[in-house]
Design a protein around this nucleic acid. Structure first.
Lengths: 344, 344
DNA sequence: GGCCATCCCTAATACGTATTGGTTCCTGGT
DNA sequence: ACCAGGAACCAATACGTATTAGGGATGGCC
């Protein structure tokens, strides 16, 4: 360190002056000024890499997404999360590392080439639907600190997450429908048995219980991978007495599109002939209907994820942090009272 | 390094195996496998700070913005840059480090507390209007590799950038107006004398020269900090024969808003009484008029910035990389022929 | 047996900082 | 004159990696 040589003190002293807030009062005012001046003259700057090497912490938080964040078609879905994460990260004085490189032949993997790239950061926020369970399990196993946005489960481990309260939000929607007189509901769920699907179904059943509808008079239909719902299928449901649909939105909004198409095909009017509730956020398309739905507090979820992560870093008991945030119900125009004669 | 102890080799050998592509062929296949397996079992990852300190690559590129990227009001302006940067970063197998923390009492500084935080990354893309020249100069001085999005100058140094060709785009707009018969133009520029402003003005004068309009019959007006343009002012211009305005957009779109307000106040119709060209992208507001304007290739600029940066990293001659990208002219409805009797 | 080449690995070092125990020097008190 | 104690600084070390010179072992060749 040439600055030390120039002033004629040791490198340690220079370090005390430059960075030491606490211990720098034990250096003489005169030396301090000399050092600072020399630093200014030489255009000296602290090397962050060295400081981090010494300190252990990198003051970087990672953001890893199982899907690419930036393709435009999903932009508006993922963007609020990113927004919240970024804001909180900045507020706490950290930098945000976007793991965009982690592709392994097209699909994104945490362990590219056998190494866990996330470890360059102090901790990591995870995000995305198409996750690799084994990657996640491995991550838990080597107890790397991370928080998932969205409730996720892995066998034999509790992990930290910030999730939308799908259970409560769905339950409330069932009540809303019941309040309007609906007694026969159909829940259209996605295939795949992911946590969000399970939570919505749990909320559906809770809601039925709360309002005293026997499970037999309602139904659960799984939308298969083709995503097709025919008009005949819809007519079939209505003929069994169903008056309202609760639809789980898929990533590409195919389910809700399929419902609209089926309704058109079967000449079923929404909401006059059939009420429809969207269990989540609506499609991003412009001419979207004003669905009755609930909306995730996505930005807040991002912020809270960071908060939990830092909490995890600072006091590392082995305890997972778990947080469910309420969704905002939005009363759109896609529900009404059941058609006359079908209220019971 | 416990991985070395575990396998029973030296740390140097481990390093050869882990990172050494070139020299790693001089290590026995057997030890190599043993090391790799131990690494996998222990969940080892290289310490980026250490590697960087030693002089190696981190495979991280930084993105530093002089303004916060994420506040929603500027989101749509900065987002395309971010998009392009992210895409290119990922494509080249790098991760993207967002320097969001770099705030020093409200304003964003590169050298917060004397530390050059950017140094943890291999190189950095810079972005933003309110830059600190001295930070930039310091960065050049310690020749840290970076590319600016937008043309920037610092004294006594040439720096790398990817810029929109404001000169050419503005020149073409002058021609477009001249083609329609306009001979008296007014250029409304921002105060502050930043490069984008200077480039537009240079383009303005070039255009005048090209079409043979003497500079005296046109005018340049600087919009002061208040951003106010009165109806009287506008009327004054028109009375001197001005038939078209070229307006430099400000960050908060105040100039173009001010022009509209002044026009309304003075009962001047756009474009019947006065043509208006926007020298850049239009306001983000919904009910925006279809301005005649030009549009920056922002996403492409982001991508190219990354490309130049990597080029800079790979073959480090001291040469700066500079790239100007053409803007796309958009013919909106805000220009017309001059009012009758004023065509000459 | 002596010599050299090859192979595989180790030891040492540098990178730039933060921290700690220790040393020197000075002041003041007895 | 001596010691206590504090002020101001230094030397040494650790952080984790990449790199280089070199060393020990082995084998081949004359």
């Amino acid at each position: 360190m040439d600055i030390a040589r120039r002033v004629g003190v040791s490198q340690g002293t220079v370090s005390l002056v430059i960075s030491g807030g606490a211990a720098s009062d034990q250096v003489a005012e005169k030396t301090r000024r000399a050092v600072l001046q020399a630093a200014a003259e030489l255009g000296y700057t602290v090397n962050a890499a060295a400081r981090r090497l010494k300190g252990g912490r990198t003051r970087m938080l990672g953001l890893y997404t199982f899907e690419p964040v930036f393709p435009v078609d999903q932009r508006d879905f993922y963007f609020p999360f990113l927004l919240g994460v970024e804001e909180a990260t900045a507020r706490y004085g950290y930098d945000l590392l976007l793991f965009s490189s982690a592709t392994d032949g097209g699909t994104r993997r945490i362990y590219a080439g056998g190494v866990n790239r996330l470890k360059v950061a102090d901790g990591c926020v995870l995000l995305g639907r198409h996750l690799h369970r084994d990657d996640l399990a491995a991550l838990v196993h080597e107890d790397f600190p991370f928080v998932f946005i969205g409730r996720r489960e892995v066998p034999d481990a509790e992990l930290s997450y910030v999730a939308a309260d799908y259970v409560g939000a769905t339950r409330d929607m069932v009540r809303t429908l019941a309040d309007r007189g609906h007694r026969h509901l159909a829940y259209l769920k996605l295939s795949g048995d992911q946590e969000p699907t399970r939570d919505r179904e749990a909320g559906f059943r809770q809601g039925l219980g709360d309002v005293g509808i026997p499970e037999e008079s309602s139904m659960v239909h799984t939308v298969d991978d083709s995503g097709v719902i025919t008009g005949d299928l819809l007519r079939g449901w209505l003929s069994t007495g169903v008056t309202a649909l609760l639809v789980e939105p898929s990533e590409d909004d195919s389910t809700i599109v399929a419902v609209e198409r089926a309704a058109a095909e079967a000449a079923v009017r929404i909401p006059e002939d059939c009420s429809v509730v969207l269990l989540g956020d609506p499609p991003l398309g412009e001419r979207a209907r004003d669905w009755t739905r609930f909306s995730l507090p996505r930005e807040q979820m991002g912020r809270e994820a960071v908060r939990l992560l830092l909490d995890l870093l600072d006091n590392d008991d082995g305890e997972p942090r778990q947080l469910n945030l309420a969704c905002t119900p939005i009363l759109g125009v896609s529900i009404a009272e059941p058609p006359a004669g079908l209220t019971s």
